[in-house]
Simulated assay, not measured.
Amino acid sequence: MTSVTAHVIADDAEALAVAAGLAEAFRTEAPVRDAERRLPYAELEQLSASGLLGVTVPADHGGADVRQETLAEVFRLLASADASLAQIPQNHFVYVNVLRRQGTTEQRKFFFGEVLAGRRFGNAQSEAGTRHVQDIRTRLLPLPDGSHELTGVKHYSTGALFADWIPVLARAADDNLYVAYVPRNADGLTVVDDWDGMGQRTTASGTVRLDAVTVPADRVVPHHLTFRGPQLLGAVAQLLHAAIDAGIAGGALAEAAEFVRTKSRPWFESGVDTAAEDPLLIQRFGELDLQVRATEALLGVAARAVDAARDELTDASAAEASLAVAAAKAHTTATAVLVADALFEVSGTRAALDSLNLHRYWRDARTHTLHDPARWKIQHLGRHVLNGTRPPRHGLL
């Protein structure tokens, strides 16, 4: 369990300053953590202590309640330094949002207090071997005393190994979706560190096994009710994924520029003394910078659309937010992979040395962008442009 004393961040400006400082601190050892698969326990304690995990807690519960534009920038900054570290708290903020939407007064009071104290939420959401991502087979069954019994197996459970609380997505006897907030040390709950992805190596996105885990009634939230009206749960979740991809792209571009300035030799035909003066390399860096600037701009547009919808939530504003996030996510997906790959193109043969571990940017980008298909983001954009069709309320858009 988290044992730190967490700072409480006051406002958006402080959140951004704290995130920038943590990003610089995390950047130094990021290549080694990835190469050795050194799990970031100490860094996550720093994250908890910093107060960043509590920045979306509502003001009436003592939090800064920052804008989503600020939260997206926090994630972009962290991901530019270490995409695995940035990925770990993504679900934390999603499940804080679930409580904000459907938690009772007492649930919000208790869990927001936990979050402000630096406690971390993991997740046990996705399942393997089912028909599709929304085919959830983990079951939450009632017990005679009013509590529930939770049974199932979850995969890709990012953050669970490091969590104080693990939100579990499950279906009740009525087949509706609920979220059960389960302590990491609950009897019958096992977290297996079996993640072996080629990228995001230190997210520990392994398996969670739930064997007749008892859950009190006041730790269960009716998640299905969220989608019966306009909602931003999916837009916020996807916005943070887009911010991670944008961070990877920006980090890869900065790494490539530093490598060319300090380690690359000019091509003999260029007639210049340093690689940084090579006109063809200058041109290519300009093209890559243009791509990164465009993706960051779309991220900002999407975040502001989510903020606008939060201020006045309607079917129309929720749809606009989801579409803006879809556009950003499709663009950041392409940009992260493109720039991480181009790092080698502009840096030359030496950049491929395994000892430098520059390929972590590409591995992280390629792995993270598989989270959900960008082609479906584009599909919903097209449907809206041609036919005015609003995006569906399924929490993944």
Rank of each mutant, 00 (worst) to 15 (best):
M1K: 13
V4G: 04
A6S: 07
A10F: 04
A10W: 03
A13L: 12
E14Y: 01
A15I: 09
L22V: 04
A25T: 15
A25V: 15
R37I: 05
R37Q: 11
E43N: 13
E43H: 09
G51N: 02
D60T: 04
G62H: 03
V66C: 08
T70Q: 00
A72C: 03
E73H: 03
E73C: 00
L78H: 00
S80Y: 05
S80N: 01
S80F: 01
A81M: 02
D82L: 10
A86C: 00
G103W: 13
G113M: 00
V115P: 04
G118Y: 08
G122Y: 05
N123C: 12
T138Y: 07
L141Q: 14
E149M: 11
H155W: 09
G159T: 02
A160S: 13
L161C: 08
A163T: 13
V168R: 00
A180R: 01
A186T: 00
D196C: 05
G197E: 01
D211A: 07
V215P: 00
A217H: 13
H224I: 08
H224G: 15
L225T: 08
R228Y: 15
G250P: 08
E258P: 12
L280Q: 13
E287Y: 09
E287K: 09
L288V: 04
V292A: 08
R293S: 12
A297E: 11
A305R: 05
S317E: 03
V325H: 02
A328S: 09
K329Q: 10
D341I: 15
D341L: 10
S347H: 05
T349D: 13
R366N: 14
Q379E: 11
L381F: 00
R393V: 05
L397P: 06
